[in-house]
């Protein structure tokens, strides 16, 4: 505000003076002008700097106050209300889920693992076996187990004769309960 009026005065002086009134006056005026504008610039710089500093420090102080206060305040508020309850009351979850794109979710789902899990849980292989194997599988299993038990008998005798430390039959010992269906 202050320097604007100064400027106008200077401008008026220059414009009203007659051109004939010599270079001395002109040099005085120009010196005065440059000194004036320098002073003005300095004043302006000082003002702007101080305004800037005040603004920034205010911002910083506000920010740090908010940073400390807001979490505490929000926490205090949130801990006093049941957000789940609010969401249940005011939000239609099904509506939101219906809008969700399911494809990327399914891409993240381990399908093969789930399939294996289900097969494991319902024991699908045994269902297949029971429905297709029947009597033949049971008979075959019995014959195989009898052969294995004879294997073990032979190995036991030979291992004992040869004084073997590790017995072959121990590894493939099959419990007798299992050998019959």
């Amino acid at each position: 505000m202050v320097y604007e009026s100064d400027e106008r005065e200077t401008w008026v002086e220059i414009s009203l003076d007659a051109p004939s009134e010599t270079s001395a006056l002109q040099s005085v005026v120009s010196t005065a002008t440059s000194v004036g504008s320098g002073a003005l610039g300095l004043a302006r710089f000082a003002t702007e700097t101080s305004i800037y500093m005040v603004t920034e420090s205010t911002k910083a102080i506000t920010k740090s106050i908010l940073d400390t206060v807001v979490p505490v305040a929000v926490n205090a508020i949130v801990s006093r209300i049941d957000i789940n309850e609010i969401v249940k009351e005011h939000v239609d979850v099904n509506e939101i889920v219906a809008q969700a794109d399911i494809t990327p979710i399914l891409d993240r789902v381990p399908m093969a693992e789930i399939a294996d899990y289900v097969i494991e849980e319902i024991d699908l292989p045994s269902l297949v076996r029971e429905s297709t194997g029947g009597v033949a599988d049971g008979l075959l299993g019995t014959i195989r187990f009898q052969a294995i038990q004879t294997d073990n008998l032979v190995s036991q005798i030979v291992d004992r004769i040869l004084f073997r430390g590790t017995k072959r039959a121990d590894a493939r010992e099959v419990s007798v309960d299992h050998a019959h269906i």
Partner: peptide, 10 residues
């Protein structure tokens, strides 16, 4: 697990 249970040990 597609093996019969009694055959798994061998």
């Amino acid at each position: 697990s597609s093996l019969p249970e009694r055959a798994r040990s061998i």
